[in-house]
Design a protein around this nucleic acid. Structure first.
Lengths: 305, 305
DNA sequence: GGGTTGTATTGTCTAGGACAAATAGGTTGA
DNA sequence: TCAACCTATTTGTCCTAGACAATACAACCC
């Protein structure tokens, strides 16, 4: 009956935060944080507040900060940093979808959120909904989280609501004989599948045939699928949590495994931090870029001019 | 232009197979496999065939085999083992949904698969569809994979198709004022969300209000969500890939974080390998158990008898 | 059968060190 | 002014080898 101390082992912290055991041990020596206690066997055990701080640090690192400048900082400092980095986003005016949606989330009304999104979709049309509402909304939710204004589970509820609405819209939209044939997925380290759904919606709306593999497909399997399904384009999505340095080699390897005629497009927040695309691939940091890429594909593949 | 050798580093193998670096190094010493080459810096590099064999081994371990009995075995042996373990499944007769669906997958017709599933849903009704078609179909797909008859990406296509059909059916079904209020999700190590969708469909059909958080919610957040949404039941799903030994402690901790009135149900293939449920929780190895649990909850919560 | 004990197996953790790869900052040249 | 190069520092990943708790299995007794 005694409460099992909520201290976590190093392995559990790795799972919770996404920081590898090696990194956790190194930081301890280099920056003096985390500073886990030891159990009776001399093994590290991390108190919950340190785990939370680690989560916050991870989040800040995902936005481009470096360990040396944040790992040793106090929690209050970190929260201030998190709050200061939304300056670039245009401030959301009252009554906008951002504030409405965040409100519904905080008032614990997922069903209401779903309805609000659906109404908005019908009012704006799918393309505008994805580009003008969902994109800023995603940012707003992410930032609200990093400022501690909403909980992780509320982010999950949001994702589910959006996914439900989008899948519904997409259901009747996909034309099996549409062109180009587009394969969409993410690589194994990227669990976030909202991006490919949004792109799929935009492209299908323009008459492309979108084949989604869902998230987390091994690179080799992406190539197999592309071959078997004879697709014209492969779209990969990399969210902000994906380590940017792993993107170019991954794209290069995929490029090598695919025939030259098959295009490779990489989208998502992490691609915005890349200076340039690896040879034979194309970056789509924003949704507009996806439509531009589609238009360009059409121009160069139209037999008649 | 030189082809970057497709050898993988130990970290890459960890990501691809789900076997930790520690385990990979230990197996090397204990069982003589894997036997990676070394690059110019003395670091392990794994050839693709060894990675494939590791994937196969992982799959067999997920079904209950132990390392000492399989890690050192030849690939042919392993494939034979994989092929022999579907004896318990009643053989699928020709023309059944199993053979039809697998056929469509192998013929690379995801759109056809989706239609077939949708037709089946309409013909059988949602409950029978989930219990009598989807459940055996999931098994069949999993086993076909482990026998090497279908590729991973085909499994992904299957999952997407099922998810599309189920979400569609679920869209209009959920009654915000239904009872009990049920929260569904998986823990962070469990990416497989099909199970919660299937359960949600069954329960919503019976008039429950199903709140899905999607997959991979941290335990603490599950508790937060349950409190904020005032749910009556929390359902967690553990697929075959989830290490069974981690289930009881996780359930126990959740039990501790939730009020006594909130029930905890654990479903999925991994729960079938548990001898008994931790105190204050309930195991649902099959879909029927979910319905039984719902009926029981209703019986004990009905004011009048 | 059902529970208890002992034994073997297996995964996780420890330590400190080496070093490649990524990044920042300064310098040079167009 | 901007781009391209260089160098120094930072940072993550990998190495070895061993200790040991937790788990699973087998044998035993009731």
């Amino acid at each position: 009956m005694s409460t099992p101390a909520p201290y976590l082992s190093i392995g559990a912290v790795e799972r919770e935060t996404g920081l590898s055991k090696d990194v956790l041990r190194k930081w301890e020596g280099r920056y003096g944080f985390p500073r886990p206690l030891r159990d009776e066997f001399g093994e590290r055990i991390y108190p919950p507040d340190q785990v939370n701080r680690l989560r916050l640090i991870k989040r800040l690192m995902d936005t481009g900060m470096r360990p040396s400048s944040i790992v040793a900082r106090e929690e209050a400092d970190l929260l201030a940093l998190a709050g200061n980095r939304h300056v670039s986003t245009p401030a959301a005016q009252d009554g906008s979808i951002e504030t409405t949606a965040l409100d519904l989330l905080r008032r614990h009304d997922p069903e209401g959120l779903r309805q609000a999104l659906h109404r908005l979709l019908l009012r704006q049309g799918l393309a505008a909904f994805v580009q003008d509402s969902l994109t800023p909304l995603n940012h707003a939710v992410g930032e609200a989280w990093s400022r501690g204004e909403i909980e992780i589970y509320e982010e999950h509820l949001y994702t589910e609501a959006v996914q439900g609405v989008l899948r519904n819209a997409l259901a009747g939209l996909n034309d099996r004989h549409g062109r180009p044939r587009v394969l969409l997925t993410t690589l194994p380290e990227e669990p976030h599948g909202l991006g490919i759904l949004m792109v799929a919606a935009l492209l299908a709306l323009e008459g492309a045939y979108c084949l989604s593999l869902g998230p987390q497909t091994p690179l080799e399997e992406v190539a197999n699928a592309a071959r078997a399904q004879a697709v014209d384009v492969v779209v990969l999505s990399f969210s902000i949590i994906y380590p940017p340095r792993r993107i170019p080699p991954a794209l290069a390897e995929l490029r090598q495994r695919l025939e030259a005629g098959v295009e490779i497009w990489a989208g998502g927040a992490a691609t915005a931090r890349l200076s340039r695309a690896p040879a034979g691939t194309r970056l789509l940091p924003t949704m507009e870029d996806a439509l531009a890429a589609l238009a360009e594909w059409r121009r160069s593949h139209d037999a008649r001019t």
